[in-house]
Amino acid sequence: MTTSIDRIDRRILEELQADASLSASALGEKVGLSQTACWRRVQRLEEEGVIRKRVALVDARAVGCETIILANVKLTAHGRSNLEDVAERIREIPNVLECFVVLGSQDFFLKIAVKDIFAYEKLFFEKLSTLNGVAEVRSSVALSQIKNDTALPVTETSGKT
C-alpha cells in the first residue's frame, strides 16, 4: 500500500516523533490545522500504517539496563525455514531490543540491553547459544553511546514525497 504524505503530514510526523503525547489540539496548533482536521490526519496516518504505534521512551539506566551488547549471529544453514525459526525465537527474548537480518559473513545483528556483563553471560548461555540453527554468536560490549534517536527524517528531501 502506497501512502501519499504531504508537507503537513510530514510536520505532524516530526512533531509526534518529538512528543507523541501531544493532544490533537496542541498538535494542530503547531502544524497550522484545526483540532478536528489534525485528528483526522493522525487517524489516517495510523490506519495506513505510517504511524505504527505511540510509545514512551524509557531511560535504560533508570530500569537497570546499564549494558548494551551488540551481537552478530551466524546460522548453521541458510534455508528460509531456519532463518524464520531462529528469528521467531529471537523475538521472544525481551532483552533483544533490535534484530536485523544482514548480508555478509553473519546472518543477524542484535542490540541487547542487560543489567551487566553477568546478566549477558546468563542470557548467552541460557538462550542465545541454545537456539537450534545458531552456529556462532560474536558479541561486543558498547562502551558509550554517541547517538540514540528514534525519530526518522521525514522532511521532503529525506526520501519519497
Rank of each mutant, 00 (worst) to 15 (best):
I117R: 08
K53Q: 14
A20N: 05
P94Q: 05
A119S: 14
A135D: 09
A119E: 12
P94F: 06
K122L: 09
E46P: 05
V114C: 01
N148P: 06
L70Q: 00
V102K: 04
N95Y: 06
K115E: 15
K53T: 13
H78S: 13
F109Q: 04
F100Q: 05
L97D: 09
L27T: 05
R80P: 08
T3S: 13
L75R: 03
G64P: 05
I51S: 01
C99V: 04
G32M: 00
S4L: 10
E136M: 11
T130K: 15
R52W: 09
V134K: 02
G159L: 06
S158D: 12
L128T: 04
L13N: 02
Q43E: 15
D59Q: 15
A20G: 12
L97W: 11
P94Y: 03
G64M: 08
T161K: 15
I93D: 04
G28D: 01
M1F: 11
R41E: 00
T3N: 09
L16C: 05
T3D: 12
G159T: 06
V96L: 02
A87N: 08
L57I: 15
R7D: 12
N95I: 06
K160A: 15
I117Y: 10
L103D: 11
I68K: 04
G104Y: 01
I8R: 04
A56M: 13
A18W: 10
I5V: 15
L103C: 07
E136D: 14
E15V: 05
E29Y: 07
V134P: 00
K111W: 02
E47C: 03
L143M: 14
I8G: 02
F109H: 08
D116W: 02
N72K: 02
C65F: 14
D9V: 03
A151K: 15
V101G: 03
E84A: 11
T130H: 09
L33Y: 02
